[in-house]
Simulated scan of single mutants.
Amino acid sequence: MLAENLFTDLDTEDKGKIKRNQIRDALFHMGVEMGIPPLSEFPLLSDILKKHGAEGEDELGQAQFAHLLQPVLQELADVLAENPMVVLQKIKINNGSKLRKILADEKQLSETVEKIMQEEKDGLSTKDVIRHYLEKNGASLGLPPLNDELVILLYDTVLGAIENGNTDAKTSEKDEFLVFLKEILEKFAAQLEVNPTFHDLDN
Protein backbone atom coordinates (compact mmCIF):
# COMPACT_ATOMS: atom_id res chain seq x y z
CA MET A 1 0.00 0.00 0.00
CA LEU A 2 2.86 2.39 0.82
CA ALA A 3 4.57 1.77 -2.52
CA GLU A 4 1.25 2.14 -4.34
CA ASN A 5 0.51 5.48 -2.69
CA LEU A 6 4.01 6.80 -3.33
CA PHE A 7 3.86 5.71 -6.95
CA THR A 8 0.52 7.49 -7.41
CA ASP A 9 1.92 10.68 -5.86
CA LEU A 10 4.99 10.61 -8.11
CA ASP A 11 3.12 9.69 -11.29
CA THR A 12 1.99 13.28 -11.77
CA GLU A 13 1.31 12.78 -15.49
CA ASP A 14 -0.81 9.69 -14.79
CA LYS A 15 1.18 7.61 -17.28
CA GLY A 16 1.51 4.54 -15.10
CA LYS A 17 5.28 5.00 -15.28
CA ILE A 18 7.88 6.93 -13.30
CA LYS A 19 11.63 7.26 -13.72
CA ARG A 20 13.93 4.95 -11.81
CA ASN A 21 15.72 7.85 -10.12
CA GLN A 22 12.41 9.00 -8.60
CA ILE A 23 12.99 6.45 -5.85
CA ARG A 24 14.93 9.31 -4.27
CA ASP A 25 11.80 11.48 -4.47
CA ALA A 26 9.78 8.68 -2.88
CA LEU A 27 12.10 8.69 0.13
CA PHE A 28 11.79 12.46 0.35
CA HIS A 29 7.99 12.11 0.34
CA MET A 30 8.18 9.62 3.20
CA GLY A 31 10.30 12.02 5.22
CA VAL A 32 11.47 12.05 8.81
CA GLU A 33 7.97 11.25 10.07
CA MET A 34 8.34 7.77 8.53
CA GLY A 35 11.94 7.30 9.64
CA ILE A 36 13.72 8.46 6.48
CA PRO A 37 16.56 10.89 7.29
CA PRO A 38 17.25 13.80 4.92
CA LEU A 39 19.93 13.09 2.33
CA SER A 40 21.84 16.16 3.52
CA GLU A 41 22.25 14.56 6.95
CA PHE A 42 22.63 10.95 5.82
CA PRO A 43 24.98 10.74 2.80
CA LEU A 44 24.99 6.92 3.01
CA LEU A 45 21.53 7.08 1.48
CA SER A 46 23.08 7.91 -1.90
CA ASP A 47 25.28 4.81 -1.66
CA ILE A 48 22.27 2.64 -0.84
CA LEU A 49 20.33 4.00 -3.82
CA LYS A 50 23.29 3.43 -6.13
CA LYS A 51 23.87 -0.09 -4.81
CA HIS A 52 20.30 -1.11 -5.61
CA GLY A 53 20.24 0.52 -9.02
CA ALA A 54 17.84 3.29 -8.05
CA GLU A 55 19.39 5.69 -10.54
CA GLY A 56 18.85 6.43 -14.19
CA GLU A 57 16.15 7.81 -16.44
CA ASP A 58 14.53 4.53 -17.52
CA GLU A 59 10.89 4.15 -16.54
CA LEU A 60 9.32 1.72 -14.10
CA GLY A 61 5.79 0.47 -13.69
CA GLN A 62 4.15 0.27 -10.27
CA ALA A 63 5.19 -3.34 -9.61
CA GLN A 64 8.79 -2.65 -10.67
CA PHE A 65 8.85 0.44 -8.47
CA ALA A 66 7.63 -1.54 -5.45
CA HIS A 67 10.18 -4.29 -6.18
CA LEU A 68 13.00 -1.71 -6.22
CA LEU A 69 11.79 0.28 -3.22
CA GLN A 70 11.60 -2.71 -0.87
CA PRO A 71 15.33 -3.60 -0.70
CA VAL A 72 16.27 0.09 -0.47
CA LEU A 73 14.03 0.52 2.56
CA GLN A 74 15.24 -2.74 4.09
CA GLU A 75 18.90 -1.82 3.85
CA LEU A 76 18.18 1.68 5.10
CA ALA A 77 16.41 0.19 8.13
CA ASP A 78 19.34 -2.16 8.77
CA VAL A 79 21.90 0.65 8.57
CA LEU A 80 19.87 2.90 10.88
CA ALA A 81 19.41 0.03 13.35
CA GLU A 82 23.19 -0.24 13.62
CA ASN A 83 23.78 3.51 13.57
CA PRO A 84 20.72 5.31 14.97
CA MET A 85 20.50 9.01 14.28
CA VAL A 86 18.40 11.84 15.61
CA VAL A 87 17.09 14.43 13.17
CA LEU A 88 16.22 17.78 14.68
CA GLN A 89 13.46 19.68 12.94
CA LYS A 90 12.49 23.32 13.27
CA ILE A 91 9.04 22.56 14.59
CA LYS A 92 6.89 24.77 16.78
CA ILE A 93 4.43 23.16 19.17
CA ASN A 94 1.32 25.17 19.95
CA ASN A 95 -0.36 23.98 23.13
CA GLY A 96 -2.33 27.15 23.86
CA SER A 97 0.15 28.57 26.38
CA LYS A 98 0.35 31.97 24.64
CA LEU A 99 -3.43 32.11 24.43
CA ARG A 100 -3.72 31.54 28.16
CA LYS A 101 -1.30 34.40 28.86
CA ILE A 102 -3.36 36.71 26.67
CA LEU A 103 -6.57 35.62 28.38
CA ALA A 104 -5.02 36.72 31.68
CA ASP A 105 -4.13 40.14 30.23
CA GLU A 106 -7.29 42.27 30.34
CA LYS A 107 -5.56 45.21 28.68
CA GLN A 108 -4.50 43.19 25.64
CA LEU A 109 -7.94 41.61 25.38
CA SER A 110 -9.55 45.03 25.48
CA GLU A 111 -7.24 46.32 22.75
CA THR A 112 -8.03 43.26 20.63
CA VAL A 113 -11.76 43.84 20.99
CA GLU A 114 -11.32 47.44 19.85
CA LYS A 115 -9.47 46.25 16.75
CA ILE A 116 -12.13 43.66 15.99
CA MET A 117 -14.96 46.16 16.38
CA GLN A 118 -13.24 48.52 13.96
CA GLU A 119 -13.36 45.76 11.36
CA GLU A 120 -17.05 45.01 11.74
CA LYS A 121 -18.94 44.15 8.57
CA ASP A 122 -22.63 44.73 8.03
CA GLY A 123 -24.80 41.65 8.24
CA LEU A 124 -22.25 39.45 10.03
CA SER A 125 -22.93 37.94 13.43
CA THR A 126 -20.59 38.61 16.33
CA LYS A 127 -19.13 35.13 15.92
CA ASP A 128 -18.48 35.61 12.21
CA VAL A 129 -16.82 38.98 12.75
CA ILE A 130 -14.52 37.46 15.38
CA ARG A 131 -13.75 34.47 13.16
CA HIS A 132 -12.89 36.76 10.26
CA TYR A 133 -10.49 38.69 12.49
CA LEU A 134 -8.89 35.57 13.99
CA GLU A 135 -8.33 33.99 10.58
CA LYS A 136 -6.30 37.06 9.58
CA ASN A 137 -4.64 37.93 12.88
CA GLY A 138 -4.84 34.81 15.06
CA ALA A 139 -1.08 34.24 15.09
CA SER A 140 -0.57 37.42 17.12
CA LEU A 141 -2.85 35.96 19.79
CA GLY A 142 -1.18 32.56 19.83
CA LEU A 143 -3.42 30.66 17.41
CA PRO A 144 -1.78 28.23 14.97
CA PRO A 145 -1.40 29.33 11.33
CA LEU A 146 -4.45 28.55 9.22
CA ASN A 147 -2.56 26.52 6.63
CA ASP A 148 -3.74 22.94 6.98
CA GLU A 149 -6.94 20.94 7.34
CA LEU A 150 -6.41 20.17 11.03
CA VAL A 151 -6.30 23.85 11.97
CA ILE A 152 -9.35 24.59 9.81
CA LEU A 153 -11.12 21.75 11.62
CA LEU A 154 -10.05 23.27 14.95
CA TYR A 155 -11.66 26.59 13.97
CA ASP A 156 -14.84 24.80 12.91
CA THR A 157 -14.96 22.79 16.14
CA VAL A 158 -14.44 25.76 18.44
CA LEU A 159 -16.67 28.23 16.66
CA GLY A 160 -19.30 25.61 15.95
CA ALA A 161 -19.70 25.16 19.71
CA ILE A 162 -20.25 28.89 20.26
CA GLU A 163 -23.77 30.28 20.13
CA ASN A 164 -24.28 33.56 18.32
CA GLY A 165 -25.01 36.53 20.56
CA ASN A 166 -28.48 37.96 20.91
CA THR A 167 -27.37 41.05 19.02
CA ASP A 168 -25.24 41.33 15.93
CA ALA A 169 -21.70 42.68 16.03
CA LYS A 170 -22.74 46.11 14.83
CA THR A 171 -24.86 46.82 17.91
CA SER A 172 -22.89 44.84 20.49
CA GLU A 173 -21.52 46.67 23.49
CA LYS A 174 -17.78 46.36 24.03
CA ASP A 175 -18.20 44.41 27.28
CA GLU A 176 -20.50 41.91 25.60
CA PHE A 177 -18.02 41.58 22.76
CA LEU A 178 -15.21 41.00 25.25
CA VAL A 179 -17.10 38.17 26.96
CA PHE A 180 -17.78 36.59 23.58
CA LEU A 181 -14.12 36.80 22.51
CA LYS A 182 -12.90 35.36 25.81
CA GLU A 183 -15.25 32.39 25.47
CA ILE A 184 -13.89 31.65 21.99
CA LEU A 185 -10.23 32.00 23.01
CA GLU A 186 -10.77 29.86 26.12
CA LYS A 187 -12.18 27.08 23.95
CA PHE A 188 -9.23 27.37 21.57
CA ALA A 189 -6.82 27.17 24.53
CA ALA A 190 -8.60 24.11 25.93
CA GLN A 191 -8.54 22.33 22.56
CA LEU A 192 -4.84 23.11 21.99
CA GLU A 193 -3.92 21.90 25.46
CA VAL A 194 -5.48 18.51 24.72
CA ASN A 195 -4.46 18.37 21.04
CA PRO A 196 -1.41 20.58 20.37
CA THR A 197 -0.64 21.53 16.78
CA PHE A 198 2.77 21.27 15.13
CA HIS A 199 4.07 23.42 12.31
CA ASP A 200 7.34 24.52 10.74
CA LEU A 201 8.91 27.60 12.25
CA ASP A 202 9.21 28.96 8.71
CA ASN A 203 5.41 29.08 8.40
Rank of each mutant, 00 (worst) to 15 (best):
N83R: 13
L39I: 08
M85F: 00
T8Q: 10
L88F: 14
I23T: 08
F7N: 04
T197C: 09
Q22S: 03
N203I: 12
V151Y: 00
E163K: 15
R100F: 03
A63I: 10
V87I: 15
G165I: 08
L185G: 04
L69C: 02
K101A: 06
E173H: 12
H132D: 13
G138A: 07
H52S: 00
K170Q: 11
E41T: 06
K174Q: 12
D202L: 12
L73D: 00
K101H: 04
F42N: 04
Q22E: 08
E33P: 02
L6W: 04
A66E: 07
D168C: 06
L76A: 02
A139G: 07
N203D: 15
P144W: 02
I48S: 04
K121Q: 13
L76E: 01
T171R: 07
K136P: 02
I18P: 01
E193H: 12
E176M: 12
K15S: 13
F28T: 13
L153S: 15
K90P: 01
E13V: 05
E75K: 06
E57Q: 08
G123M: 00
D9C: 13
G56L: 04
V32I: 11
I162N: 06
T171V: 10
R131M: 13
A139Q: 14
E13A: 11
P196N: 09
I102D: 05
G123Y: 06
L201Y: 02
D122T: 08
L60S: 02
D14L: 10
L192A: 03
P43Y: 11
Q108E: 10
K92G: 00
D25E: 11
D105Q: 00
D11S: 11
I162G: 05
D14M: 09
I18C: 00
I91D: 01
F177K: 06
L2W: 11
Q89E: 15
G31S: 05
V72H: 02
S46G: 07
L181N: 07
K101R: 11
E114M: 10
P38N: 09
G142P: 07
L185S: 04
D128W: 14
E149T: 14
N137T: 03
Q108P: 03
N21E: 13
E176F: 15
K51S: 05
N5P: 04
A26K: 06
V129R: 08
E176H: 13
E149F: 11
P71G: 06
E4Q: 12
N137R: 12
R131I: 14
K127H: 04
I102Y: 05
P43L: 08
F180R: 10
